[in-house]
Design a protein around this nucleic acid. Sequence first.
DNA 1: TTTCTGTTAGGACAATCATCCTAGAGAGAT
DNA 2: ATCTCTCTAGGATGATTGTCCTAACAGAAA
Lengths: 190, 190
Amino acid sequence: MINKRTTRDHIVEAANQLFYEHGFEHTSFSDIANQVQISRGNFYYHFKTKDEILAAVIQLRLANTARILAEWEQKGESPKDRIRCFILILVTNRVKIKQFGCPVGTLSSELAKLNHVAQKEANEIFTLFRCWLRTQFSLLGHKSNADALAMHVLGRSQGVATLVNAFKDEKYLQQEVKQLCEWLDSITDE
Amino acid sequence: MINKRTTRDHIVEAANQLFYEHGFEHTSFSDIANQVQISRGNFYYHFKTKDEILAAVIQLRLANTARILAEWEQKGESPKDRIRCFILILVTNRVKIKQFGCPVGTLSSELAKLNHVAQKEANEIFTLFRCWLRTQFSLLGHKSNADALAMHVLGRSQGVATLVNAFKDEKYLQQEVKQLCEWLDSITDE
DNA sequence: TTTCTGTTAGGACAATCATCCTAGAGAGAT
DNA sequence: ATCTCTCTAGGATGATTGTCCTAACAGAAA
């Protein structure tokens, strides 16, 4: 029972990484099986279809995201600090973003093109960030337009991730992060 | 010669559309052949490999982009008007963006994940916009940071396109476009 | 007519894909 | 030892992929 869970976890973790680095469609059963060092037959025992793996990967990402947001909730003293934590993931994950873009945004747009059933679930990851940011902006006193501000920050991050991925320009990333932080300052202390 | 809409052109146009709507990898030879109503054999006469079609599609997009930028150059009276033209493509193409995202950004990130050889050529489309915007900001008197401003507008647009595609929220799009235009005003008249 | 050249159709090819199946290993219980 | 159950391995399946081949067609040139 314990052994089953670990193998399954290994599969989901490998799929999570490969879906991010090579895309959902460009990742095959064999790719994942090779990464985990198990046979394709064993693989099938744990997941009947590719969509099942995708669903599991999305669940994993949702859980990881929720965990990170909870951590920020504790770490950041003020709502402003917490929002800064969000902005700074661009810096923290810059190496991977340069190579593969934002995991949330790229999965979302890939599934949109495939017209995939899991599209909605994948976008829930966006929604987690959105709601969390909205809460922080509300706490900052921007109750009336908290959602718009949340979407704004989310969009700015997405844009930066896309262009950093295209141009591999770290200076641009730093510049935009700085600008975003300044924007955050400008709407908080008045 | 005058009305020379050759089979080859039809193929490239169909591929251009399908690559945008379903992605490069998820579009097969058969898909394109079906769309153009020709046989796969005829197809092969015009393009030996899938990468050749991709290269042709990118060339088509580069030409189309250059044409549009030239049009804006003539239509827009001031550099500011021209930059506004760029910002407003989000509104003009909002229906397609909602469904499939930005054609430039999504192709770029897909090819990045595939580690495709045509990655660089695809990013040239971004570069066309970037250089054109840079020129406009230079003409506006922002010579020293024209490139940063160009990248900023480009990034904001990309972010909006990604989130509109995910959330299908047209009100958010309108709001961000308005904000971008206001930002443009704020850095021009002082 | 015959010949040549550019174009088309349709099938063949090996490779790869997601999926499915069966045999068996290993451990624990009886 | 036998039985049972979870887990694993590896091959088979049929569909689809990108790629390639060859025969036939059309129109112009000879």
